[in-house]
């Protein structure tokens, strides 16, 4: 089962993403966090050995600790270094995208994210983990 961390402060946006993920199938499990600080606390305390995180979907504008700062912190921890991070943004500004990549994002999606985009993303995710020979344990 793939564990996805959704960090999104907008309840409606989060709900939409949940809908998409649920539709993908029950091999995905998502945890939703609404602000940067809470997400950071979660990452610090989670047990990667027994419950690894396979994907982080990260909104950039977050209360308390914003998305870019959170991304830097994620990339500064060895344990979360290799977790793919896909940035969710409502901005299409080049500088925001550049900044996200520079901070360590693997990809980015411009909101609203359509269902087919999520499909594509999850396909990439599974092949990524396959290549790394770290297939997650199936449920």
């Amino acid at each position: 089962m793939y564990h996805i961390l959704l960090i999104e402060d907008n309840p409606a946006h989060a709900k939409l993403m949940f809908r998409h993920l649920t539709k993908m199938g029950d091999y995905l499990r998502a945890t939703h966090l609404t602000d940067g600080e809470a997400a950071y606390d979660y990452l610090l305390n989670c047990d990667f050995a027994h419950d690894p995180i396979h994907l982080i979907l990260l909104d950039l504008r977050l209360p308390r600790i914003d998305g870019i700062e959170l991304l830097r912190r994620i990339r500064s921890k060895p344990i979360s270094l290799q977790v793919p991070v896909v940035v969710l943004t409502s901005s299409e500004r080049d500088e925001d995208i550049r900044e996200a990549y520079a901070a360590g994002a693997n990809s980015y999606l411009v909101k609203p994210v359509a269902y087919d985009k999520v499909q594509e993303l999850i396909e990439q995710l599974t092949s990524y983990w396959f290549q790394h020979n770290r297939m997650p344990s199936m449920p």
């Binding site: 907008n10 409606a12 946006h13 939409l16 809908r19 998409h20 539709k23 504008r61 409502s90 901005s91 909101k111 609203p112 994210v113 359509a114 269902y115």
Partner: peptide
């Protein structure tokens, strides 16, 4: 301007996102 545009965009994203979902 950036903040305003972002926050104004937010409901629009919600609307367009759910319209997409509505189709499905």
């Amino acid at each position: 301007t950036y903040t305003v545009s972002h926050d104004l965009k937010s409901p629009l994203i919600t609307i367009s996102g759910f319209i997409g979902a509505l189709k499905e």
